[in-house]
Nucleic acid binder design. Structure first.
Length: 312
DNA sequence: TAGGCCATCTGGTCCT
DNA sequence: AGGACCAGATGGCCTA
């Protein structure tokens, strides 16, 4: 029987990924000569047992069966014996390919996690939540681009969190608070406008060369305005929508609205990033400026609104 | 302990 | 024939 080379595990790999990584290529290399040498042995003991059961049944049936049936059974047996090893090998190779494919998919999902609002290495969004958040995010950006209207914070987060679970919603809300804190650290910026965050990220039309905020006609996230002032006349991301998506460019990277994701991921559960994370109950009110208090009030409002559906 | 999430295995289907 | 893709099954891990 083969022994698994677990001594080759790297320290930062999960058991599953280790199981995968060494099996992907090494297993085939290990298995192939092993199969060539001893076809009756296989790593997949479950499959092995099933196949053995089939053979036993065949042998049992041969005892009292007519000649033609014995002949057929014999052919079947000969066939399975001659192809069994190859089938096993192909199955192992297919498994490796499938793992590789799924890893590619997961890598793509990781990339997606990094460009949607709320990115944390320690508190990773689930796959489904990542996709939902990305969908809402794309819809919001498209809506902002097409209408050019200002978005109030409440509407923005509400739309962003549509269909998300409560933990994810809380995470998004936490990210939101995080960013308002980072804005507070720049008191000279125009009336705490979320638009300020946009200045850190050039749009697609800039092609990476144009500095953002220099006479843009776009107003992705305006100053705080009254709730439900702007985009409520439009369809929601869950509805069919009436947006003309044909003229839209690929989504901007507005991730700076929430976190400076490409610098250093934030652990929302631990406060070690200074101003970038200001937990409500860990910062004394004396540290807060008037803006901060106002924003916190709005944050509570947002969080309360967001949690409403979950409490009903 | 139940439920959610995930990685992996597996067989089926489609395409080249 | 073989690879890509898909969906169901399964078992492990984690958390409330």
């Amino acid at each position: 029987m083969l022994t698994l080379p677990f001594d080759e595990q790297s320290s930062n790999q999960t058991i599953s990924s280790v199981r995968m990584s060494w099996t992907s290529n090494k297993l085939v290399k290990l298995i192939k000569p092993e199969i060539d040498r001893a076809p009756e042995e296989s790593l997949d003991t479950r499959r092995e047992d099933e196949l053995r059961d089939v053979e036993v049944k065949e042998e049992e049936s041969e005892a009292g069966d007519p000649a033609w049936l014995r002949r057929r059974a014999s052919q079947k047996k000969k066939l399975s014996h001659s192809r069994l090893d190859r089938v096993r090998l192909r199955r192992i190779e297919a498994n490796a390919r499938e793992r590789h494919r799924m890893h590619g998919l997961n890598n793509a999902l990781d990339s997606l996690r990094k460009v949607v609002p709320c990115y944390s290495k320690t508190q990773k969004l689930s796959k489904i939540e990542t996709l939902r958040l990305a969908k809402n995010y794309i819809w919001l950006l498209s809506e902002i681009l097409s209408t050019g209207k200002r978005l109030d914070l409440l509407t923005f987060v509400q739309t962003l969190c549509k269909g998300l679970s409560q933990p994810t919603t809380n995470l998004v809300a936490g990210c939101l608070q995080l960013n308002t804190c980072s804005l507070i650290s720049q008191p000279d910026e125009e009336s705490l406008s979320l638009y300020a965050a946009y200045d850190h990220h050039p749009g697609p039309e800039a092609g990476g060369s144009t500095t953002a905020g220099s006479g843009r006609s776009l107003r992705p996230f305006g100053s705080f305005c009254s709730p439900f002032e702007s985009v409520n006349d439009s369809s929601s991301p869950d509805s069919s929508g009436s947006l003309d998506m044909g003229t839209l460019s690929p989504p901007f990277n507005f991730s700076g609205l929430f976190t400076l994701k490409h610098e250093e991921p934030v652990d929302y559960r631990s406060c070690h990033n200074g101003l970038r994370y200001c937990p409500i109950n860990q910062t004394s009110s004396s540290d807060l400026g008037p803006y901060d208090i106002q924003l916190r009030g709005q944050f509570y409002q947002v969080q309360g609104e967001l949690n409403k559906p979950f409490h009903n």
